[in-house]
Amino acid sequence: MSYDYPLPNPQDYDVSLKTGFLPEDLPLAELPEYFKPWEKIAKVIPALLLTHRVRSAIDKQVPLLSTANLKTEAEYRRAYSVLGFLAHAYIWGVSEPTNKLPESIAKPWIEVSDHLRLPPIGTYAGLCLWNYQPIFGDLHELLENGHENISDPSEFLDNIQTITTYTGSLDESWFYLVSVYFEYIVD
């Protein structure tokens, strides 16, 4: 017995025919100025974790910001990634984990997660797919031309870096970036 079911359209599921699960446009490296308090802490998470000051920094420096100021899907994706890093650093970043997040992180993270239809937790999308940027400006050209035009696939991997990490280590960055590489390069 055979069934004839139409194949789903990948784009209905945010899957690109060109880049797979990666967005066709490069991830945002930074949110607009309004969201600077989130970005400011995200940039120094490794130092705050090392000194066990991440909770106090978030509590003192991160006000409750409105997600109504997010305008594009790229901004929502970056917000999801940043808030995920902040939330997990807040929960696990000192000697005693906590089961509570401040409203300034929890409320916008839930709103952004609802918009993206993702759970408010560190996900593959937030850690990897929306958390890389080019080292040199030609990565966008590589993406536009499609991976079949890249003569050496390591060109792609050699030209990306993570935007946000917990440790600042190369090992953590490579853990995320290898996934990006395989999402994009492997057919």
Results as ranks from 00 to 15, higher is better:
residue 159 N to M: 06
residue 162 T to P: 05
residue 161 Q to L: 01
residue 146 G to E: 04
residue 152 D to L: 08
residue 141 E to L: 07
residue 158 D to Q: 13
residue 156 F to T: 08
residue 163 I to S: 01
residue 144 E to D: 14
residue 134 P to D: 10
residue 151 S to Y: 12
residue 144 E to K: 10
residue 163 I to T: 05
residue 150 I to H: 08
residue 154 S to C: 01
residue 163 I to R: 05
residue 133 Q to A: 11
residue 128 C to W: 04
residue 158 D to R: 13
residue 155 E to M: 10
residue 141 E to N: 09
residue 136 F to A: 07
residue 141 E to P: 00
residue 147 H to E: 07
residue 126 G to H: 13
residue 130 W to M: 04
residue 124 Y to P: 00
residue 148 E to G: 13
residue 141 E to G: 03
residue 161 Q to C: 01
residue 139 L to P: 07
residue 129 L to K: 06
residue 157 L to V: 07
residue 152 D to Y: 08
residue 153 P to S: 09
residue 134 P to K: 05
residue 154 S to Q: 10
residue 153 P to G: 05
residue 143 L to C: 07
residue 140 H to K: 15
residue 146 G to C: 04
residue 139 L to I: 08
residue 154 S to N: 07
residue 142 L to P: 00
residue 143 L to G: 10
residue 127 L to D: 03
residue 125 A to S: 12
residue 145 N to I: 04
residue 149 N to K: 15
residue 155 E to A: 09
residue 139 L to A: 12
residue 142 L to M: 11
residue 163 I to W: 06
residue 142 L to R: 07
residue 162 T to R: 02
residue 131 N to P: 04
residue 160 I to N: 04
residue 153 P to D: 07
residue 124 Y to Q: 15
residue 141 E to T: 13
residue 154 S to A: 04
residue 132 Y to M: 05
residue 131 N to T: 10
residue 163 I to N: 01
residue 131 N to M: 06
residue 150 I to N: 05
residue 151 S to A: 15
residue 133 Q to S: 03
residue 155 E to K: 08
residue 159 N to Q: 05
residue 148 E to T: 14
residue 159 N to L: 11
residue 137 G to M: 02
residue 159 N to Y: 06
residue 125 A to E: 15
residue 138 D to H: 11
residue 151 S to D: 15
residue 143 L to F: 14
residue 126 G to I: 09
residue 127 L to F: 15
residue 158 D to S: 13
residue 148 E to S: 14
residue 162 T to Q: 01
residue 144 E to T: 09
residue 134 P to L: 08
residue 142 L to C: 02
residue 135 I to H: 03
residue 163 I to V: 13
residue 136 F to H: 12
residue 129 L to Q: 02
residue 153 P to M: 01
residue 133 Q to G: 01
residue 149 N to L: 12
residue 127 L to E: 12
residue 133 Q to E: 10
residue 157 L to A: 05
residue 136 F to T: 06
residue 156 F to H: 03
residue 159 N to V: 04
residue 142 L to A: 08
residue 140 H to E: 12
residue 163 I to D: 02
residue 154 S to P: 00
residue 149 N to T: 14
residue 132 Y to K: 03
residue 130 W to N: 14
residue 130 W to D: 14
residue 127 L to N: 14
residue 134 P to V: 10
residue 145 N to Y: 09
residue 151 S to M: 12
residue 150 I to M: 11
residue 155 E to H: 08
residue 127 L to W: 15
residue 148 E to F: 12
residue 160 I to D: 02
residue 148 E to C: 10
residue 155 E to D: 14
residue 128 C to D: 04
residue 136 F to E: 14
residue 133 Q to Y: 03
residue 157 L to H: 07
residue 139 L to T: 05
residue 156 F to C: 02
residue 127 L to T: 06
residue 124 Y to G: 01
residue 154 S to Y: 11
residue 159 N to T: 03
residue 150 I to P: 05
residue 138 D to Y: 10
residue 157 L to W: 03
residue 128 C to I: 02
residue 161 Q to N: 05
residue 160 I to K: 05
residue 130 W to T: 13
residue 156 F to M: 08
residue 155 E to P: 00
residue 156 F to I: 00
